[in-house]
Amino acid sequence: MSLDKIGIAKRISKEIENGMYINLGIGIPTLVANYIPDNLEVVLQSENGLLGIGPFPTEDKVDADLINAGKQTVSMLQGSVLFNSSESFAMIRGGHVHLTILGAMEVSENGDIANWKIPGKMVKGMGGAMDLVASAENIIVAMQHTSKSGKSKLLKECSLPITGIRCVNKIVTNLAVMDVHPEGGFILRERAPGVSVEEIKEATEGRLVVDGDIPEMKID
């Protein structure tokens, strides 16, 4: 059984460590916030100028002046802080944010990521993604292993315009957990429950490094 979006989010939540400042992208990464273990103290950063993102507000607390980077209304927590966009990206570029989790359309075996543009089709812009991937020390990509048409999204080289080069450390898909090899290749670390190494190989266009027995992911 391949994982659903919640499964991917749950598996990524296991990468979170106590004391981390974390930036979560839009989509599956946002879901990760729901599965952060209660015993960990972490702070979520929103690049539009908020550290300490709280849960969605109750109806009576909705405030148009308090949104996250996905333009959703949010709340603040005790200890939250607000700042301007320049300061926000100083935190990101300056390496003060410990972990960045974001979605992707393609990842290459040397860690390049493409997630901002489909020429002639989608021109939404890169938002903060280029700043995040160029600066973060620790980048986890959350995505489906293949496109809707069944094409691998883990490639030798990205075919779409890239967002950043040699920046992805780890990828969690519906099929597998992989680390990016410093010399190129996706090192297979874990399989989704019931998914075989062969199936993962089949779905991976780039070089898949399989060393020894590959355990199944543990997801509660």
Partner: peptide
């Protein structure tokens, strides 16, 4: 916006958000 951009009516410079702010 997307329509005007793809049809060439509008010039657009897309800039990484942190670069824009800085």
């Amino acid at each position: 916006f997307e329509r005007q951009l793809l049809s060439g009516e509008l010039e657009v410079d897309l800039i990484p958000q942190g670069t824009l702010a800085e």
